[in-house]
Design a protein around this nucleic acid. Structure first.
Lengths: 236, 236
DNA sequence: TGACATCAAACTGTTGACATTTAACGTTCA
DNA sequence: TGAACGTTAAATGTCAACAGTTTGATGTCA
């Protein structure tokens, strides 16, 4: 835990998020308070606080007297999440075309370039944080802080769904790279749409990105399960 | 704390929510861990966990080494919240017309009748819980659990904004009653729209309800401040 | 061999106490 | 009089220990 934060609970929270979104603690895994406390060199109090936060963010699920587990996202839930995300495209597009500050697309382009660099060097770990950063900047352009939070919440939850298809132990580097490459192509289109200045064009690009993302995710999921189904709330 | 829950943190959470949404702990108020713990007869651990949950739900705001405060919602934030809520009207309408189970409108009608009964008897306390229940049922009809969570989160946050205009100490019973009466009239229109079976009609009714709600809220806020402005993050 | 009962280890829920920081009060000095 | 300073009380951050429950293993009996 190398980061500096106002209190231990926040440090633990950051650390846990990194591990979960990095795939180190895949969906279904139990978060053992004592073990984690010992590993991080803190007491269980901050651990429990961090878990409460993650529970409210729907990243983990707590069962009374049994513990907390990283959530599994079912296909039905992912479908619902994508539907909401797509529905927000219009208001995001309007917000950006109305409020985005100068140099906005430049900052986005830097993110895309970084992601492309990561793709070239075969870096799989860094794509999600950079992708998250891209969407953070994108949503901040709307000037609607709550909208940003909601969208990023959906984004992180869908990350969990994708992790289920690209579990570290199976780890198909070629597939992940192809996935990232396609995804980043969509980012370029979004930037182009923003520069057009048309809210409708941008909304269309955003919707398309969501639809492509959904298709990629479901295809990857289908390939990983071979027809099986992941259900939320189940324990490993 | 009379409710039965799996653990103390959840009980404290429920109790705190009731107090906050009931106006007993108005926006800007500090949540003193020790005092609350003593009052509820529990230790500070569960209190801190509950506060972490409320912080993630954006109901309270925590400042390192200083404590947690019930959030104040600024006009700008309320505007953003209403905008998102309105934007969700379409997907909610589609979800309900596609998925709502049999007897759906009957359950909603019961809520509306209860609210009307409360209005008749001059009950001000019971309106928000009943209104929340109405929207819980309404959103459950979409079959999209995440959409339900997001909407109810916005709904609760906007409740905080309204409380600022109807603070218990000032308490204008006649205005609150008028507010509730108008609000419930909108609920009737929503039920009628659902019964029409048209997603577009329902979406229109939902949008109208949001717009009316926003107008009422801002009017009440303007009357309560006389041109002043509430800012979030400020301490009482 | 399999199902069931028993038992022990592990883990969560909760508490009370200690350390550090903040904030308020009173004092002193210009 | 007022502003700066030091002191003190209170509140948050953190921890270690205890109690009760769950879980897994062990052993027994049909």
């Amino acid at each position: 835990m190398l980061n500096r934060a106002p209190n231990l609970a926040t440090q633990v929270l950051t650390d846990l998020e990194r591990r979960i979104y990095g795939g180190a603690i895949p969906p279904g895994t139990k978060v053992n308070e004592s073990h984690l406390a010992a590993e991080l060199g803190v007491s269980r109090g901050p651990i429990r606080e961090a878990c409460r936060s993650l529970e409210s963010e729907r990243i983990i699920e707590a069962f009374p007297q049994r513990g907390s587990f990283v959530r599994r996202i079912s296909v039905k839930e992912a479908t619902d999440l994508f539907a909401i995300r797509e529905e927000l495209s219009d208001i995001i597009a309007r917000g950006i075309t109305d409020n985005a500050p100068a140099g906005f697309t430049d900052r986005l382009q830097i993110c895309v370039d970084e992601m492309n660099a990561g793709i070239s060097t075969g870096d799989l770990e860094g794509f999600f944080p950079a992708n998250l950063q891209f969407h953070k900047i994108l949503l901040s352009g709307t000037g609607n802080a709550r909208l940003e939070d909601i969208f990023l919440g959906l984004f992180k939850e869908l990350r969990l769904f994708r992790i289920q298809s690209f579990l570290p132990e199976r780890h198909f580097p070629d597939r992940v790279l192809a996935y990232n490459t396609e995804s980043n192509r969509g980012h370029e289109l979004i930037i182009t749409a923003i520069r057009s200045g048309s809210a409708e064009t941008l909304a269309g690009a955003l919707r398309q990105q969501v639809q492509d993302s959904r298709e990629r995710s479901f295809r990857a999921f289908a390939r990983s399960t071979g027809g099986g189904e992941a259900s939320a709330g189940e324990v490993a």
